[in-house]
Design a protein around this nucleic acid. Structure first.
Lengths: 199, 199, 199, 199
DNA sequence: TATGAATGAGGCTTCATTCAT
DNA sequence: AATGAATGAAGCCTCATTCAT
């Protein structure tokens, strides 16, 4: 692992653990077992490290989105799949998410980055909804707003999971919540879902 | 306005604007037009100021919750009312919310405070759902999880509104989203929402 | 008790307990149950309080010295009496002594005050020795130096007692130590030193 | 000279000159011609600097004590030697002594350090007396108390010398004072001192 | 006399960044 | 590339003293 990557990965761990402000260059150097000066050979500033972390994360989500779109084009992506993929992604990148959630309010670069992230996620969901509506599997809801609502729900789920891990996971129920609101039941299409539950 | 209140209100503005770390005691004193030493005549530490802000906010939400419960007891509280009241409250206390959202990840006191806040909101929604289910106006959904989902949605809405004000407000649609997922159509229409609005 | 005396006595306790630097005007006011401003109505500065304490102590020792001299004049003062009186005095004024010992190295006023105190004590002992030598009860030792040695021993004893109370009291033995060095045994006078030097 | 040693030696001078409280980190940095931040690269806190000074002094006295014991074992150490060695040591380490004497009443670390110092000196003197008594050259005095008395006398002497240099040195007479009290005249005369020295 | 809020200088400490080696 | 000592600005906080009431 190159020194640059070592710094990046150590910084990622530290920022997600203690926050950006509490990760000092001294701490970082000690934990990465390099000298403080070395950091500045690879990065312009402390913020620059964060920038790299954010950029990498950005790429990763871009890849996920592309992959989802490909499957959407093939028509093999159910809502459960889409949300499931996102859960998997977010869990796998918990440290990045924590960094984003923990710094967007204090650092302009993260704020912008998270803004883009939200927009991308919203866009993806919008696209999914749009196809669903066209196919008659999804109710005719406003695209932009609903996309945002779902994206938003994801962030909330992650936040709770990352910062209040003692609260029981409610992601499954969140999926159900969305499905009830959006999905048109396959059989008796005119009606809502779970019609069978009622007399 | 007493000096203590002046400090409190100036600090509230500053923290919500630039974050807790970037509000320094020197900045705060300058903007409040007092000397730095004066801050410490009224508060034990910089964090103590935040503590007071959080406590006050806590009281305010407690009052709202109580008021909602009273109306629930009378049976005059619809879902729209409940959510509407929350929107009003959150808008009226935007600075507090921004402080909470911006510091829970870096300060233990805010983290605890926000934890309590979430729990209270969830509890209130649970109670509402529970009554609705008993009355047959709300679908039979898991109480705790669903309460959390709605609470969560609120925080998300506020976050977007406060940090990305350029994104169009989607709160109305969020209410609709929740209603579709939760509310049982009054009489003959056991199904989806607003189907009649469409041609 | 007048406010001035209240301040003085409270300050004396505090300085002897925690030291001059750690007694702040805020602390003092709180403990004396007065306001900070009141201190400055009675004293010019924090050091001025100390000055008063030192002056009072000075008077007290002056009184002791005078009393000892009176008894010396009457010829009724043995070495044991003299040292005993000093022990009693020092014990009775432990707080003052602690203040003096704890501040002479950092404050000019105490330094001067302690200098005077030492000189007075030395002078008194010198006088005692001088009479004893004349009477043939005390060895013919250098007056100034020996007076200082005894004075010095007292300060040492007090210091240990006040700052290392866990060390067993050795004042009785200190008196014996001095007596062995100074007193000519009553019976076999010829053995006393330098007797042959005198006509 | 390394920066650390520079700080240490500058601090030693300053503390002994103006006291621990009046040596501020800003003063120290200015006098050592370094920046304030540099201090904290080498020491954890201002008190930590003092701790190092005290530790070094501790070592130095330990070395002296060991050397004295070695000579005691060889039987070549007279009382004059022992006290003389101590005078030399104390003079050579005047700054350290001044620091110890000037801060033991306000700082826990110095208080402990001086407590140890006193105990060590007392122990050494006790040992000397114990051997002297066994050999019949010293009177049969209580060991612990007398050891303390002599140790105490040393501190007193140093104190006067360091803080009231205008007072004439009385250390020679102090040695004589002790000898008269403790030493048994060599041959036939169990009493009076040094009568044999005279014609 | 008494109050106590306000002051502001100054104390200790931290930390991102630079630079000589 | 790497080191790590040095920097100095800035942060939080304390405290003797003043002043309007």
């Amino acid at each position: 692992m190159s020194t640059k990557d070592l710094i990046l990965s150590t910084a990622k761990d530290m920022i997600s653990e203690v926050g950006f402000h509490k990760m000092t260059t001294a701490n970082l150097a000690r934990r990465a077992e390099i000298s403080e000066g070395t950091i500045y050979r690879h990065f312009e500033s402390k913020e620059d490290i964060l920038q790299h972390i954010l950029d990498t994360f950005d790429q990763k989500y871009l890849a996920l989105a592309e992959q989802c779109r490909t499957r959407m084009d093939k028509g093999t992506l159910t809502m459960e799949d889409l949300l499931g993929n996102h859960f998997t992604f977010l869990n796998a990148n918990a440290a990045d998410i924590k960094i984003v959630l923990g710094t967007y309010s204090i650092l302009e670069i993260t704020h912008r980055s998270m803004g883009r992230f939200i927009e991308r996620m919203r866009g993806l969901f919008e696209e999914f909804l749009s196809r669903g509506i066209a196919q008659g599997t999804v109710r005719d809801v406003p695209l932009a707003d609903t996309g945002m609502i779902i994206a938003n729900m994801f962030f909330g789920l992650m936040r709770i999971k990352l910062y209040w891990p003692e609260i029981e996971d409610f992601s499954k129920e969140a999926v159900a919540f969305c499905q009830r609101s959006l999905i048109i039941a396959p059989a008796d299409k005119p009606t809502g879902n779970k019609a069978e539950d009622r007399p």
